[in-house]
Design a protein around this nucleic acid. Structure first.
Ligand SMILES: [Zn+2]
Ligand SMILES: [Zn+2]
Ligand SMILES: [Zn+2]
Length: 355
DNA sequence: CAGCAGGGGGCGC
DNA sequence: CGCCCCCTGCTGA
């Protein structure tokens, strides 16, 4: 929560300036694959972990856990000493490869919590600060060799330039890793049973015999993806509980950095960079502006019923203008008049009629 | 009607 | 892989 996510300009048409206050101390604001470990710990609230007084550092990455159980759990889950070493990214699944991965601990990476002003309050995460960073006790920063109290304090002050509000709110090691070391998370993912499962349910296929284009099919839901990356994203969002990208201002977590960014911009930023050219309306997303334009300033009704003259601005199950005479289920409202969708709609209608 | 989260396509690096 | 785009669905005013 404390460090900034590197902000690419998601809104090139605006001067949107997200108040990310903390320098990216961990490196280049690195790529953070949307992936996680296998523990399935989806509780991003971070507010529930039994606290013990003994702090034990994880030998793998130096983070000082709040409790021995946390540490143990971490070691079991994050640094398996044995096992099949499934890896999605490497053809080699040998133990040495695993060791190599482990040795790559803490590459340059950026933590991925969006943080706003320190004067803000109300984040459930914030209340954990005292748990993690009491006034005394050893605090080894996982990314920093500085382990002395004063050194760390200085370190934290540097990291979290807005006084002391955002330090380490995470209450256990896993949460710490999730929030601080996404890159590392990615590696863990590659080692985890989660990744193994991901690999298991990925079926490469060629949709058409004529086509040489490889497609990626999820065997769990039979969805076909055009790229492996899209499949992986799908896996993470649908078949995994991991959401490594946590918002610092609320308890929401996301599977991708971009979604976190979107969330932060819409929920925690006061900026509304999208201004309607026809009225005073402003909003946070381009999509909303587009919808507004469609609803408010367009006389076009692109969605024409194939069965009658009814037309409207929507093609969804949202409340649309009810058809004049008969209530036509949304399924009967055909899409934009493209050949394929038209055929599709016709087929659907036919099948409904046949029922 | 607007805010916002979820999810997939696709492009550029 | 990160990012942007788009669409969809849910929700509440
Ligand atoms: Zn699936
Ligand atoms: Zn948030
Ligand atoms: Zn307008």
């Amino acid at each position: 929560m404390e460090a900034q996510v590197q902000v690419h300009d998601a809104y090139p048409n605006s001067s949107l300036n997200i108040p990310l206050l903390f320098p990216n101390q961990f490196g280049q604001g690195g790529s953070a694959p949307a992936s996680g470990d296998a523990d399935g710990d989806d509780d991003v609230s971070g507010a529930s972990s039994s606290q013990q007084h003994i702090r034990i550092g994880c030998p793998q990455h130096g983070f000082v856990s709040a409790g021995a159980s946390d540490l143990h759990q971490n070691i079991d889950l994050e640094h398996p000493a044995s096992g099949p070493h499934p890896c999605t990214e490497e053809t080699s699944s040998s133990g040495s490869g695993l060791q190599q991965n482990i040795d790559l601990d803490h590459p340059v990476s950026g933590p991925h919590r969006y943080c706003e002003d320190s004067s803000s309050s109300g984040s459930g995460l914030h209340k954990n600060i005292d748990l993690e960073h009491p006034a005394s006790g050893p605090h080894r920063c996982s990314e920093d060799s500085s382990s002395s109290g004063s050194g760390l304090q200085q370190h934290n002050n540097t990291l979290y330039s807005t006084e002391t509000f955002f330090k380490f709110p995470e209450v256990n090691l896993q949460q710490h890793i999730k929030s601080r070391h996404p890159q590392r998370n990615a590696r863990k993912f590659s080692l985890s049973k989660c990744a193994g499962e991901c690999k298991e349910i990925l079926h490469k296929c060629h949709l058409s015999k004529r086509s040489s284009v490889e497609k990626f099919c999820c065997s769990k839901c039979d969805y076909v993806f055009t790229t492996k990356g899209n499949f992986k994203r799908h896996f993470l969002s649908k078949h995994s509980t991991e959401k490594p990208f946590q918002c610092c201002m609320c308890d929401y977590a996301f599977t991708t950095r971009w979604k976190l960014k979107s969330h932060f911009l819409s929920k925690h930023s006061t900026e509304k960079p999208f201004q309607c050219s026809e009225c005073d309306f402003v909003c946070t997303t381009k999509g909303n502006l587009k919808r507004h334009l469609l609803f408010e300033h367009s006389t076009k009704k692109p969605f024409q019923c194939s069965e009658c003259d009814y037309a409207c601005t929507k093609n969804t199950m949202e409340k649309a203008d009810p058809p004049p005479a008969l209530k036509v289920p949304a399924i009967y409202i055909k899409e934009e008049p493209e050949d394929e969708t038209e055929e599709c709609a016709e087929r659907e209608i036919q099948s409904e009629i046949n029922k």
